[in-house]
Design a protein around this nucleic acid. Structure first.
Lengths: 344, 344
DNA sequence: TTGTAAGCGTTATCAA
DNA sequence: TTGATAACGCTTACAA
């Protein structure tokens, strides 16, 4: 019936069945590692599979099983290294499985954003999707996934959802520890370059800064804060603003690495030496942190580990609730911080 | 027959056909925009589709059409921004089509690399795959794709393949122009931090450096070259090496941005000011270039445009040979270069 | 332990 | 311009 020639079509389960002299169901059992199978039969079929170079057809399998072994990744993130690390982590988990990763970068300013995402999920019929901040912070997308019957995991810096649908970093605690470290070094006046107010992570990081200052009885008010939107340029202008305000700071915490890099520029521009005249701390530990001068003290986020976990939660929904949901960050010390002059 | 209830299963072509009182083939014609269709019928069916929220099943479609509307992207690249830009470019092209992008980062040092890629292509049965440098420079992968009957496009810095299977940058010419610029500014002794010898791009960039120096009758020999492997650390040590050698350079060209950043560190380390004492030029125009201090003069590669074209070549193989294959780079001037002291 | 028949949701063929 | 029927390559139920 199926008379494949040398026309390049790849062998199917029927070819294997015919050559091995068994039914296709039996071949199917081999593919799916069914336990009830005569060893001799299995070996014979495996030999034919190897000889033919047979690879089961994913589309057909998906159709018959009524599920698609594809994970989706949705993001709109200015931080390339973060996104790539996340992709890498997902791949770590799905390596040697039949899963594939389909990516879907979007533009969060697009008026059709919501419909874009809906179409993506409807069309691909993923096994599950992962969504990165800041999009992940918006409940309407989670609602959408639920409405479409699509499993999902959100990455975020707060308890956005149940553990089965969340991989969370503790930004607030991590920043608090970073500021604690500056205080321990003798810093007393520590400025904040905050992230954009729409971002949950920006809020959490600001809270961490406040937590530490309050705990140490140090001042914190709006004059010590300048807001940026996670880009280099806004970090620079926020830095300029802070450095131009009244009583000088001995340290500045920037809510991400790129803004910290901008703040360093601003300091240089004013003839200040980092860290001699002012210490600067970032957040993310992107490649920039180790690349700029001076190398940046920053908070490292275990993104890849979080991504591995996110993928596992989607692949094994039955145990997803029991997997870790909180992933602590750690402070990476580099040359952009040192005790203030008064302490040296 | 198909008695879908509220159990969450999505509507199929049969549901649409039944409700519209037509055969499923007719519905199929609507989906596929067949021209031979009564307008009234079409409208009636479209109404039912909208009402039901029917979305055709990709797996079933793929199976029936015997092709998978998925593009694959294979890479092992240390440059996150480059990879993300490429992904973005591909998405630009496949947006509003039925295509999806599946990514496959690999480890080029893995002993199973070749088999990994073979498995990926065999299992996914892509419409076509794109492969990024340095992997794209290796003919054995192109041979593999051909053997597997999988269309492909290679991204590279040299004429690696026919136009239908290539998006090429002119690294050699671009570097030549960058060095020409330095010479025009008055530089006469220009060092090179070369890329790793296994990389075609490294070779091309080195040739561009030679081309320019030869054209201007300036010296170029092995003592003016230090090799790195495209990482920050090796850029730094290559920079140290050059700066420690005999007659001082007034400019250095580094074969990528991260190595240029490393060279700037090395210069700072020796108490040299960039660009006053030494000019430094990079390649890539990654985010780092605008972020480091001083901002880096560098060669910008039109990666996103190349990616858009690569995806188009895969989607329209019939016209792929006629699409542009060469994408010129441009020199971006920033603060890391200025005329040497003797010219000021 | 293995096979038969039916079905997954779509498209192609060919006839009406 | 439409429809009946048979694929596409696999899995599940059920039977043997």
């Amino acid at each position: 019936m199926n008379d494949r020639g040398a026309r390049g079509a790849s062998p199917t389960i029927n070819d294997v069945a015919r050559l091995a002299g068994v039914s296709k169901k039996t071949v199917s059992r081999v593919i799916n590692r069914s336990p009830l199978l005569n060893d001799a039969t299995r070996e014979r079929i495996e030999a034919v599979i190897a000889e033919l170079g047979y690879v089961p057809n994913r589309q057909a399998r998906s159709l018959a099983l009524r599920r698609n072994f594809v994970l989706g990744l949705i993001y709109d993130n200015p931080n390339a290294q973060m996104v790539l690390n996340f992709q890498q982590g997902v791949l770590d988990t799905i390596k040697d499985t039949e899963f594939a990763l389909v990516i879907h970068p979007v533009d969060r300013r697009s008026p059709t954003l919501f419909e874009d995402i809906r179409r993506f999920v409807e069309q691909q019929r993923h096994y599950g999707v992962m969504i990165l901040p800041p999009l992940s912070e918006d409940d309407q997308f989670a609602d959408l996934f639920r409405e479409l019957g699509c499993n999902y995991v959100r990455m975020g810096s707060a308890e956005l959802d149940e553990p089965a649908h969340l991989v969370q970093s503790n930004d607030r605690q991590a920043v608090r520890e970073a500021i604690d470290y500056l205080v321990a070094q003798g810093h007393r006046r520590i400025g904040l370059i905050a992230g954009p107010s729409g971002f949950r992570s920006a809020h959490e990081r600001r809270q961490g800064w406040i937590d530490s200052l309050v705990a140490h009885g140090l001042p914190h008010d709006e004059t010590m804060v300048a807001e940026g939107n996670y880009t280099f340029e806004t970090g620079q202008s926020a830095g300029e603003a802070l450095l131009g305000r009244g009583e000088p700071f001995t340290a500045i915490f920037a809510s991400n690495d790129v803004m910290a890099a901008g703040a360093i520029h601003a300091a240089h521009h004013r003839g200040l030496d980092v860290p001699k005249d002012i210490s600067i701390v970032g957040f993310d530990d992107t490649v920039i942190a180790a690349t700029i001068w001076p190398p940046l003290t920053t908070v490292r986020w275990p993104i890849r580990t979080m991504a591995q976990s996110a993928a596992r939660k989607l692949i094994h929904p039955e145990t997803a609730g029991k997997e870790q949901a909180l992933f602590p960050a750690e402070l990476i010390l580099r040359a952009s911080t040192e005790p203030p002059e008064t302490e040296r």
